[in-house]
């Protein structure tokens, strides 16, 4: 599991507004890639193009190519629903389904896609919760509502829910920004574990977090408000934080702006 993503000359639009311009990058399989950059630079928008969530927003569209191994995600014959089964996503705020128990939340993706076999589902519940480092905390209350967990547990529940459908890639849009430091640490440990199986892309505002968890880092920036965001540079995380090749990157990571 874990596929490579190749993006070529991607422009992202909201109706007529160009939000991100000319991104070309490669995301290595079974590694963690972090997107950093100031607010409004389009890193979350770009992330959402990688599983075609961007077009859920009215007016959202892209130009260019996103290849998952050798499949073009934006080819006319590709169903966006199928793309999202292959490329999962974890959001900024934990969003377990409030009508469902912990167990039902984990297997929501499987169930809603027609898996009915109870043995398969039970096994998947345990496997995914173990995979999300949540099993020991919730194994005695699987039938309780998912909304009753703490914020950090809810976010791990959402990760369990996302990995239960066995995606190739896991996109994380600032997954720790609503969490306290201890829960953040738990998620970061989890990300390091998950990269053995999945290709992980994580958007973060926290540069220490990018430095701690990622193998490669991409820095996004925008020239001015109202202008599209660009990919400034992308390199090994060590390289970006110790010896960036662009002035803008250095200014940003040393805290001179953003």
């Amino acid at each position: 599991m874990g596929k490579r993503i190749d993006v070529k000359d991607l422009n992202v639009f909201y109706s007529d507004f160009k939000a991100v311009e000319g991104v070309t990058m490669t995301v290595e399989p079974r590694s963690v890639t972090a997107f950093i950059g100031p607010s409004g630079c389009g890193k979350s928008t770009f992330l959402r193009t990688l599983n075609r969530m961007h077009e859920v927003t009215p007016g959202g569209r892209v130009e260019g190519k996103v290849m998952l191994d050798d499949e073009d995600l934006y080819a006319a014959s590709v169903d966006p629903v199928a793309v999202r089964r292959t490329v999962g996503m974890v959001f900024q705020r934990p969003n377990p389904f409030p009508t469902m128990s912990i167990r039902d939340n984990v297997i929501a993706g499987l169930r809603l896609n027609g898996v009915k076999n109870k043995k398969v589902l039970d096994q998947k519940v345990e496997e995914s919760l173990v995979g999300a480092n949540l099993w020991n905390e919730v194994k005695d209350r699987l039938s309780k509502p998912g909304a009753g967990l703490s914020g950090g547990q809810q976010q791990r529940l959402c990760i369990a829910r996302a990995i239960a459908v066995e995606p190739q890639v896991l996109l994380m849009d600032e997954p720790c920004s609503a969490l306290d430091p201890i829960s953040t640490l738990a998620i970061e440990d989890l990300v390091t574990q998950l990269k053995e199986q999945f290709t992980i892309v994580i958007v973060t505002h926290n540069m220490q977090q990018a430095a701690r968890v990622s193998d490669r880092t991409a820095f996004f920036n925008l020239e001015a408000t109202g202008k599209p965001g660009n990919l400034i540079e992308m390199d090994d995380t060590q390289q970006i934080f110790n010896n960036p090749s662009k002035k803008a990157t250095e200014d940003y990571i040393s805290g001179r702006f953003g």
């Binding site: 969530m53 629903v81 999202r84 999962g88 969003n95 389904f97 896609n113 996302a162």
Partner: peptide, 13 residues
């Protein structure tokens, strides 16, 4: 909340 719809879409539903 829209987040619930997005969470569901992101599972390929």
């Amino acid at each position: 909340p829209n987040e619930l719809r997005e969470a569901s879409y992101a599972l390929g539903v």
